[in-house]
Simulated assay, not measured.
Amino acid sequence: MNDHAEPGSRHAGADPVNEQPAAETSSRRQHPERRLHSLRGRLHHHRERVRRKPAMNLTYRIVLGTVGGLVLLAGILMIPYPGPGWLVVFAGLGILATEFAWAHRVNMFAKRHYHRWTRWLGRQHVGTKLAIMTATGVIVLVTLWMLGMFSTIGGWLGLRWSWLASPLFGP
């Protein structure tokens, strides 16, 4: 390695990507944070203006509650399936928590117990983990069958098996 650093090199205190001195890049890194605070400040200011008008405040809370409730419901429906079910639940509760204190308490409760569950599951024997995975798979298969997905896919493949028909939606 060369003991003499060239101007603009990493050893001279420069950012290797932008080839800028370290002092300049550190001030740039703070800029998006300042933008975030100003965006947060603008949003807070806007929310306070809305809060001063009772009709607009009620409308805002209804819309936010509806959107947050729909996201939360979608997340709850997604929990047993592979994918981001719990993430969507926490997002829905987070949306609701911006306006409703009960949603914040429920969100903290759910996160705490979710983390407890994942830590407990991580400590379990492989057989227990496989049993839980099997139960989850059975839940997924039963709900897909009840929603008629097997008969739909069977129809695409030309299979007309009566046992694939959904008990809810018929053949």
Rank of each mutant, 00 (worst) to 15 (best):
D15V: 03
A22F: 13
L43A: 08
A23F: 14
G85Y: 13
S27L: 10
P80E: 09
V63L: 13
R34W: 03
G68N: 08
L70G: 13
P16W: 00
R34G: 03
Q20H: 04
P80G: 04
I76S: 00
R35K: 14
R42P: 04
V71G: 08
M56Q: 15
G13L: 03
I76H: 09
T66K: 13
H37N: 05
F90C: 10
V89P: 15
G69Y: 15
R28V: 00
G13V: 02
G75D: 02
H11T: 08
H31M: 13
R61A: 03
W86C: 06
E48V: 03
F100Q: 07
P82G: 07
H37P: 00
G83A: 13
F100W: 14
V17C: 01
L96I: 05
L93K: 04
Q30F: 07
A12G: 04
L73C: 02
R29V: 00
G94D: 06
H45G: 05
G13N: 07
E99L: 05
A14Q: 01
G94W: 08
A74W: 13
R28G: 02
V67N: 01
L58F: 15
G69K: 08
G75K: 04
R40T: 13
R42V: 07
A23Y: 15
V89Q: 12
G69Q: 15
I95P: 09
L73G: 06
L43E: 06
L96Q: 02
E99I: 10
E19L: 05
K53F: 01
V50Y: 04
L93A: 02
H44D: 15
G69N: 10
R42F: 08
R47Y: 08
R47D: 09
S26V: 11
T59F: 06
F90R: 04
L36I: 02
